[in-house]
Simulated assay, not measured.
Amino acid sequence: MIVGLLRSLSAKVPSAVPRIALTMKPQVIFVLGGPGAGKGTQCTKIVEHYGYTHLSAGDLLRYERKRPDSEFGQLIDSYIKEGRIVPVEITINLLRKAMEKTMTENENKFRFLIDGFPRNLDNFEGWTRDMDGKADVKFVLFFDCSNEVCIDRCLERGKSSGRTDDNRESLNKRLIETFLQCTRPIIEQYERQGKVRTIDASHSVDEVFNNVKKILDKEG
């Protein structure tokens, strides 16, 4: 069944994804870091202080996964439970629709934090292919944190989040198979372009945000 859904995705998503026909191109900051690095927490504070719109790739996928009439909910569910990356066509479709909706409702809301994307080479190439000339990537905000701290934070979060992927087995897969093997090379690629701003995420929330503010006050 999953193979059939992937074939359906390949056939249908490109024609179903609307083009952003707006006067202002989205201005994007990619927010990357391992699970538990504090991306969501810091994005919330950035939104409060700087007026960005926060789009979490993971949250969009989880919402779509639960949507009763979603054609790809089962596929997304399978990938998330296994700690694997959802096909890029689905993720870009959701991100593009969310940006278009935001900018259509308020033309001044054109600055976006995209959290948890791109997570591998396929994501990077998909974004470049589908969004080239349609959105400007300002830089990558990379929250750097040790594996041990990330896992401890996620296990604590899992006590109240209800997320099925906040368990040690899924976390190890996400850190080792997904983040270290797949996302790190993307960060390195953006570093070669001079587009990475690295934050030590092992400190307290307020300490980390103080360092974020220094970057955004200068470049954001």
Rank of each mutant, 00 (worst) to 15 (best):
Y50G: 07
S8D: 12
C43M: 05
G73N: 11
A57K: 05
A135P: 06
S15D: 12
G194H: 06
A21R: 15
L6S: 04
L171W: 01
L155T: 01
R119W: 12
N93H: 15
V196D: 06
N167Q: 03
T23F: 11
V3G: 08
E100M: 13
T104I: 14
R184F: 05
W127Y: 12
G4W: 08
G51I: 03
V137I: 15
E188L: 11
R7S: 10
A11T: 09
R67G: 03
F139G: 08
L61G: 02
R129V: 04
D59I: 05
S170G: 03
F110R: 10
Q42P: 04
L121H: 11
T23Y: 13
I80C: 07
C150L: 14
Q74N: 10
A135E: 06
V3R: 09
H203F: 08
I2K: 11
K138N: 13
S204W: 00
V47Y: 10
T178Q: 10
D115A: 14
P14R: 07
T44N: 15
E82F: 00
G38V: 07
P185E: 01
K81G: 09
L94W: 06
L61M: 12
F142T: 02
G133I: 11
S78D: 11
L141Y: 07
P14N: 06
K134F: 09
K195T: 03
P87L: 04
N167Y: 03
G220A: 09
K213C: 15
R67V: 00
R153S: 05
G58A: 10
G133Y: 11
Q181G: 00
N167H: 02
G126E: 08
V196L: 02
M1C: 08
Y63V: 12
T104Q: 15
N210L: 14
R163V: 10
D69W: 05
G126A: 06
V140G: 01
S202L: 02
H54F: 01
R7A: 13
T128M: 11
I85F: 09
L175T: 03
L216T: 05
R111M: 12
M99Y: 07
K12R: 13
Y63T: 10
E219C: 04
R62Y: 06
L9E: 09
R7L: 14
K214D: 14
I199N: 03
G162I: 00
G58F: 10
Y50V: 03
V17R: 13
P18M: 02
L121V: 14
M131Y: 02
V47F: 01
I80A: 07
M24C: 10
E48C: 00
G51H: 05
F124D: 02
R96D: 08
